[in-house]
Amino acid sequence: MTIEDLVRLRRARDVMDRDYAEPLDVPALASVALMSPGHFSRSFRAAFGETPYSYLMTRRVERAKALLRRGDLSVTEVCFAVGCTSLGSFSSRFTELVGETPSAYRARRHEAGAAIPACVAKVFTRPVRNSAGNRGAGSAAAS
């Protein structure tokens, strides 16, 4: 993989970070990276260790966690606010990454982390895919 390829892949990843709530698909992201959809998907996975869809859903779940901690939106409202179109798919992916349902996460108290700056909290609350040996651990620090 060339440096130019990595620059284009980072550009597409930046679009996912910034526009996570927009309807993004592989062909649209591949056009940002100036690649064919198949080449983009293979290259993205090789460069970042996960598929573009998985990366995008992780961004959406990160934002959903922040919105659910506020407590002023329903799970359905949060689902649509972060760009998901299916409550079932959103709930399944949220549960897979966080280790608990969005409703359970929303209902739980979150005051203990309120004093932590958001830039620091983001590092430790980033959702990670739960493996068999890491079931229920919802932070990068636990993996």
Rank of each mutant, 00 (worst) to 15 (best):
T2S: 15
E4Q: 11
D5G: 01
L6P: 03
V7L: 12
R10N: 15
R11S: 13
R13Y: 02
V15K: 02
V15C: 03
M16N: 01
D17S: 11
R18D: 08
A28I: 03
A28N: 04
L29F: 08
A30N: 00
A30H: 03
V32A: 04
V32I: 11
A33F: 06
L34F: 08
P37A: 09
H39P: 03
S41N: 13
S41W: 03
R42W: 06
R45C: 06
F48Y: 13
F48K: 12
G49E: 08
G49Y: 05
E50P: 02
E50N: 06
Y53Q: 15
S54A: 15
L56T: 04
M57G: 12
A64R: 02
K65I: 00
A66Y: 03
L67Q: 02
L68W: 01
L68F: 01
D72S: 09
S74H: 09
S74L: 14
V75K: 10
T76M: 08
F80V: 05
F80Y: 13
A81N: 02
V82D: 02
S91D: 03
S91K: 06
R93K: 14
V98F: 02
E111Q: 05
E111L: 08
A112V: 01
A114C: 04
C119N: 10
K122H: 12
R129L: 05
S131P: 05
S131T: 14
S131K: 12
S131E: 13
A132P: 05
A132E: 12
G133S: 14
N134E: 07
G136S: 14
G138M: 07
S143W: 11
